[in-house]
Amino acid sequence: MSKIIACYKWVADEADIKINPDLTVDLKKAKGKISDYDRNAIEAAVQAAGSLGGKAVSLTFGNASAKQSLKDALSRGPEEGYWINAEEAATADGSITAKALAAAINKIGDYSLIICAEGASDTYARQTAPRIGAALNLPVITSVVQMTFNGNSLTAVRKLEDSTETVQTELPAVVAILPEANEPTIPGLKAVMAAGKKPVTEYTAADLGIDFTPKNQVTAVKGYVMNRKNIIFNEGSTADQVKALAAALRKECVL
């Protein structure tokens, strides 16, 4: 059965990032998560499998920590998981990420559609889908908010800054969907239980036969801090607090 491949990334939750006073970045306490919008990509694959026919599968390129993501992803509906388990993922740039995913997609074989999200919440580079398209020389449609299938043909509605476009292509193709495309279902207990029994295929870096030397050399990573007054008005009644706020705004000459 032809596969619909949802690509998702296991990322550190940006809400847990600690910036030290010297602006160094501490990711140690950051929990992992499936990148926010990638949940929409997974949902889109499951929905597409329903209307197009075929089997939704999930694919991630991550290091050992991404193991935790497999059950999470599968609980959201895909029937099979694929994991490129490679330490190289930690230093991968856009070129390597796309080539690793493309190589895995070739190994998975027999696919009709590859779905990425608009952008990952760590990089927000918005380059992976077009790059996968180039690596596999497939048609690409980005900024997708709606997909309809007719036989082997995909009609997609794209939302750009000042127009919407309806475009059409023959499958297989690569799409990048906007988070507005769907509302991801929150997996129930049954889905979570079932996820543990779904098959997972693991690839190693060596299986892919690509060069993992990044082209983008990261030379520095620095936290961003905004210095603000952080004054909370919490004395007295709500009316008193509001008065204190209004007075403070007058003092700042912004009223």
Binding site: G94, S95, A98, T123, Q127, P130, R131, L160, A176
Partner: peptide, 22 residues
């Protein structure tokens, strides 16, 4: 822009070169 980012990433993909987004 949405179109610009898409085109840029395809070009980078076909050249297999580095890209810096935004």
């Amino acid at each position: 822009t949405a179109r610009g980012r898409d085109l840029a990433a395809r070009v980078a993909g076909y050249l297999d070169c580095a890209m810096v987004s935004d």
